[in-house]
Design a protein around this nucleic acid. Structure first.
Lengths: 312, 312
DNA sequence: TGTTGTTACGGAAAACGTAAATATT
DNA sequence: AATATTTACGTTTTCCGTAACAACA
């Protein structure tokens, strides 16, 4: 039994039971993988992979059980490297942040510079995607943490902490009837919004679910003429007159967006809570906790650690 | 990095940082262990062991962190063998039961034969000790499960289920004043007991704590003239007139002990609950769950599994 | 001075890549 | 026919034990 065998088994499963791909991914020869896996099966005395003749098709029943343990071993071995790097490399390393465009564009710019100053040797990477993709990235170990408003708290295998609160705002031109009404101190209603074409976020992003639910709860059918992933796109289409925009409050910049007005919409769509998530049970470098601490003003690093790593 | 290194590190720690002993325990050469550990440290880039010159004295700070992960890896590797044996060996294997003398002598005889019949190829072993020793055996992986009334539920790292209830009984000769009183349907009191010399269990065993607490709660000072680990010894000294005995109810056999009378004492010392414990997070062979199921009449195997292995 | 850990070295074993053969779709 | 897996085989590397050496207590 050896560590290579664990890696081979894992990669073969990940690559949909294609030994050739697995071997390529691990920079080794395909016969080597084949042989190692066969020896592994022989040593354990069980067949891990379902074979149709020579083709590997999937996991056998014992294979499922073995694969679970192998996965845990692989993770712990990765943890081992991280643990030792924590001491050996001190504050060198990398931090891969999986986040939505909204986070990358509006939330992180206030945090990243401070982090960079404290850990100049940590290489930073931003990976963007939909909340479910972000969760997947963290689960697969491709990213160290994910930041999003959706999905993270519900995803099995992730541990998450609330990170900050925000609300939606409506953006439109100053001359728009809604802007006029808001200036008159009158509260904008869902019915007001439903009367106009709307540009807002795509299904999976930035509290769009709450928007849909709010309208549905009021028995209204909003006229969403365009859905986009990021507020910049939304604002652009608001500017060309496609409709009114509903975006995250932090995405409205009083200076840069002075040609538009923002009308608070928290009373319509509720408070949104962005969360930051990591893979549960994972060893994380100290600076990851520091980074999360910078994101979440009201929790201290010890609290964060306690929530994200309860059993270590 | 390889599996040997993990084993070497673990064994070196277990053997109090003596490489020579560790190498002997693992049936290999001492220079091999030394070299493997040094290479491991080099690869991780941290020093795991504290060295005074050449002597290894303990773990460094990074060593502590590394050792924790290494321990987890070792356990998972052991699990791997068990998982595959579960399928490969079907119902062959071994079952090491750590229990107190009381369990071995009075509780298990009704269970073991049935188990043996169902799994004739499973080698059985009984390891006896005090409840804390039993817990330790399970934690260290020397035993698969522990059965005892004390300690198990409180011990960190163990998962336990209640197994059966029992009560203490008083044993004495039929002519003894207490026996006379009991025959007259009068309830025996703690004060009655305190008036006579008592022979009962040793501090750590079989609900002795409840006995002490009951007397203390009543402000009485019992005259415990002899404390023993097992009921056979206690009954022997009761027979030679050393005093009255307080033993576990199941330890009184109406036939074999017909020269003594038993007086129920549940109202004095409360109900005792024996528990069965396993190391939490451990993979256990199917027959282990079957065995536990035989011990615990009121829980079915699925419930037991759920309690003892919540995250698998 | 005995015990414990490291260095040196050589034979055995294994790991791994290339080439060829074989099976599957 | 093209793709995928296993077998064969030889080189290279690693493993591991013995022997010798060094240092602690």
């Amino acid at each position: 039994m050896n560590i290579q065998q664990f890696r081979f088994v894992r990669e073969t499963i990940r690559r949909n039971f294609n030994l050739t791909e697995a071997s390529r991914a691990l920079y080794t020869s395909q016969p080597g993988v084949s042989k190692a896996i066969m020896e592994f099966e022989q040593e354990l005395g069980v067949q891990i992979f379902e074979r149709h003749g020579k083709r590997i098709k999937g996991l056998t029943k014992p294979g499922h059980a073995v694969a679970q343990v192998v996965e845990r071993i692989n993770r712990e071995i990765e943890n081992l490297k991280r643990v030792s790097d924590e001491f050996a490399k001190r504050d060198q390393g990398s931090l891969v942040i999986a986040c939505t465009h909204t986070q990358a564009r509006y939330a992180l710019p206030s945090v990243i510079p401070a982090f960079r100053e404290q850990f100049p040797k940590v290489r930073l990477a931003l990976a963007e995607g939909s909340p479910t993709q972000l969760a997947e990235m963290v689960l697969q170990g491709q990213a160290d943490l994910a930041i999003a408003t959706e999905s993270l708290a519900q995803t099995e295998g992730l541990a998450s902490v609330p990170c900050y609160r925000w609300e939606h705002v409506i953006v439109c031109e100053a001359s728009h009837p809604l802007a006029v009404k808001a200036r008159g101190k009158a509260k904008v209603t869902l019915a007001d919004l439903a009367a106009h074409p709307i540009v807002t976020y795509d299904r999976a992003f930035s509290g769009r679910r709450n928007i849909d639910e709010a309208f549905a709860g009021a028995g209204l059918q909003p006229d969403i003429v365009l859905a986009a992933i990021d507020a910049d796109v939304i604002k652009t289409y608001v500017r060309v007159g496609l409709g009114i925009g509903i975006i995250a409050g932090m995405a409205y910049d009083a200076v840069q967006d002075s040609d538009l007005v923002s009308i608070s919409a928290g009373h319509l769509f509720g408070k949104q809570v962005s969360r930051v998530a990591v893979r549960s049970g994972e060893f994380l470098r100290d600076y990851v906790y520091t980074f999360i601490g910078m994101l979440t003003a009201d929790l201290n690093p010890a609290e964060i650690r306690a929530i994200l790593r309860p059993n270590l």
